[in-house]
């Protein structure tokens, strides 16, 4: 794993690809993803959290891993469910990077996710969530005003018989550890590895696995 990790951090695509091929020669694709790709991405998330790697390295590592998946694994192995239980949106905000990092990690972990995109307004999001009824809603923001609007989103979603579990992320929540509770979210993820961990704790894992979310 160390060689793979260093290859990703130094943007050495060739070595990363070689390491993945090596893993695939020993085991099936699902196990290779579980034992090499996901733990490495989790480790990179933790290193960013500690200040030991930069956001650029997190982003480029995700892109390299996605490229490897596309290249080395048959499409059938990375299939996506028709009705993902997880939805992600950049809420009332147009800063895409945080969502991109999470989507990248979810793709690598083969967790299906429906992407509502950027700048999703309160009204749009409430309407779509009521219609799609996801089990988990991932909210990404950069601006404080958007983070504070999550409170109103939660309030409006409370009217649903079973509202989704809401996980928030983004700079305002990193800078103020109390903020996610204050706006009524169910959890905060400091990085994409934490999103994976939280989803796992909710029973959501790879595309073909059975999933259930306690609500």
């Amino acid at each position: 794993m160390e060689v793979f990790l260093q290859a990703l951090l130094s943007l050495d695509r060739e070595t990363a690809r070689r390491q993945m091929r090596l893993a695939l020669s020993d085991t099936n694709p699902a196990t290779a993803i579980e034992t090499l790709l996901i733990p490495t991405m989790e480790r990179i998330g933790a290193l960013w959290e500690q200040g030991d790697v930069a956001l650029s390295q997190v982003y480029m590592s995700g892109r390299i891993c996605e490229g490897i998946l596309d290249e080395l694994l048959p499409v059938a192995e990375t299939d996506e469910a028709d009705n993902p239980q997880t939805i992600i949106a950049v809420f009332e905000d147009s800063h895409a990077l945080g969502k991109r990092l999470v989507v990248s990690a979810l793709r690598v972990a083969r967790i299906p996710v429906q992407d509502y995109g950027l700048g999703v307004t309160l009204e749009e999001l409430v309407k779509k969530v009521r219609q799609d009824r996801p089990q988990v809603l991932l909210i990404s923001v950069l601006m404080l005003r958007s983070a504070l609007r999550v409170a109103e989103l939660v309030r409006q979603l409370e009217a649903m018989s079973e509202r989704p579990y809401i996980i928030v992320g983004g700079a305002p929540f990193l800078l103020d550890a109390q903020l996610w509770r204050q706006v009524g979210a169910d959890a905060m993820a400091a990085n994409s590895a934490e999103v994976l961990r939280l989803l796992k704790s909710l029973g959501i894992s790879a595309a073909k696995a059975e999933r259930s979310v306690p609500l």
Binding site: L9, G51, V53, A54, L55, S56, Q57
Partner: peptide
């Protein structure tokens, strides 16, 4: 900042 890009860049 090292928060955003690696020292090399």
């Amino acid at each position: 900042s090292p928060t955003i890009v690696a020292a090399e860049w």
